[in-house]
């Protein structure tokens, strides 16, 4: 498996961010993940999560996810008041397990995409999105 520099950075930052979070928030992020995985182990890689490095406005952040072989993907925003974002279930006529959405991010944070594969295993990707606060912007 290959990591791009950005992936590696994101994963590292992800771990750092999780470590630095208040326990209540951390618990709800963990709950949101466990609710999807049932506590199963999650392997890194095999999931592509595209998100802007810098979002010009946190109200509308375009992201896309893709995980060959996945039957469902859950997106988790670790820095939002609630980490829940969306769960995408792919039907038999989905040409690929991929989708693009626009999401709200309350602040700079890591977002996670966790894929449930056809064999019941789980994989994940993370991305850090910096959310800018405008100078004026009318």
């Amino acid at each position: 498996m290959q990591f791009t520099r950005r992936d590696t950075l994101a994963l590292g930052l992800g771990a750092a961010a999780l470590a630095g979070m208040p326990s209540a928030v951390l618990a709800s992020v963990e709950d949101e993940i466990a609710d999807f995985t049932g506590g199963a182990e999650i392997a890194d890689g095999g999931v592509t999560l595209d998100a802007p490095e810098i979002a010009e406005n946190g109200n509308t952040v375009p992201i896309s996810v893709s995980a060959p072989g996945a039957v469902a993907i859950r997106i988790v925003a670790t820095g939002n008041p609630s980490p829940k974002v969306a769960t995408i279930n792919f039907g038999p006529l989905a040409a690929s397990p991929s989708a693009a959405l626009r999401i709200r991010l309350a602040k700079t944070q890591d977002i996670l995409a966790i894929a449930r594969m056809a064999d019941g295993s789980f994989r994940r990707a993370a991305a850090t999105v910096k959310v800018t606060i405008g100078g004026c912007g009318g």
Binding site: T60, G134, G135, C136
Partner: peptide, 24 residues
């Protein structure tokens, strides 16, 4: 130039009305 985190434009209005991500 940047005014804090905003990239200042020339303030042209050829795109108005404009859909802003800020207030959707």
């Amino acid at each position: 130039n940047m005014i804090r985190a905003d990239h200042l434009s020339q303030g042209q209005i050829n795109g108005f009305p404009v859909y802003r991500l800020k207030n959707t």
